[in-house]
């Protein structure tokens, strides 16, 4: 028998220039379902005007990032029981630091453009992206095989970043992590972009990006590593070697 919980889903609503508000829906759910399943149920059976983004349902596409009870989550892999108790309220908001298009959908265009700008590669050789666990380390003959990059460009890290809240100019954790993945490698244009007020030095070490990242990217660590790369490149250029 399926264990059923009763929860209240409180969903952020905003259409066009209308002032935002919350709609609430009483739902019966299996607590082992995911938050995205509950949102889809509202759309399917209660309110067809609800707008939200999703695609793969297995944390690969990065489309369903939202704030669940004020914490950034990829809703397709967030079990309901991990964020609410039986009888509780599950609040769902769109991500911060991006313009809201409609309800739970935000415009991630600035993120995608910047990822392109820093040369982030969505696909790269196995040998270039360290394996998360030693057991998953590729065999030497597989190092040139291709894999998808860890970053799924969901935008959760930018939503969680307190610095990104105040300045749209800040490149943000995902983009800086993308630059680190690309590597400076004598790319002067990229060096100027990340070694700036809106680049690596804007980060104030709150580490929220790494805390919410659903995909093993660890943007904070990459930002710190990029700082070392920037300093190395500047020193090399000072001595005429860059």
């Amino acid at each position: 028998m399926i264990n059923e919980w009763k929860i209240t889903l409180k969903i952020y609503r905003q259409k066009g220039q209308e002032p935002p508000h919350y709609d609430t829906f009483e739902l019966e759910v299996n607590p082992d379902e995911y938050v995205l399943d509950a949102i889809e149920r509202v759309w399917a059976f209660r309110d067809r005007s609800l707008t939200f983004a999703h695609a793969c349902h297995h944390s690969t596409c990065g489309a369903c990032g939202m704030r669940v009870n004020d914490v950034e989550k990829l809703t397709c892999i967030t079990p309901i029981r991990s964020v609410v108790a039986n009888g509780g309220v599950l609040k769902v908001d769109p991500m911060r630091n991006f313009p809201v298009v409609s309800d739970l959908v935000v415009d991630l265009g600035s993120l995608y453009q910047r990822m392109d700008q820093v040369g982030h590669r969505s696909v790269l050789p196995l040998g270039e992206e360290p394996a998360p666990h030693p057991a998953a380390a590729p065999a030497p003959e597989d190092l040139q095989a291709l894999r998808l990059a860890d970053c799924i460009e969901c935008g959760l890290c930018i939503s969680a970043c307190p610095v990104a809240t105040t300045t749209p100019a800040y490149l943000g954790p995902a983009v800086l992590a993308g630059a680190q993945q690309h590597g400076l490698n004598g790319d002067l244009k990229l060096l100027e972009l990340v070694d700036s007020d809106s680049g690596v030095w804007r980060c104030h070490s709150a580490f929220e990006c790494t805390a919410v990242c659903p995909s093993n990217v660890d943007p904070a660590r990459r930002i710190m590593d990029l700082r070392r790369q920037v300093i190395g490149a500047r020193i090399a250029r000072f001595f005429g070697r860059g």
Binding site: R96, T165, F207
Partner: peptide, 27 residues
């Protein structure tokens, strides 16, 4: 539209709700 970055959002730096240890250190 709501949720956009803005300099007027700076008081949110000091909101520790639902934040991790790194944010508490930052605040």
């Amino acid at each position: 539209m709501s949720n956009k970055p803005s300099p007027s959002n700076w008081p949110k730096w000091f909101d520790p709700r639902r934040r991790e240890a790194g944010s508490w250190a930052f605040i």
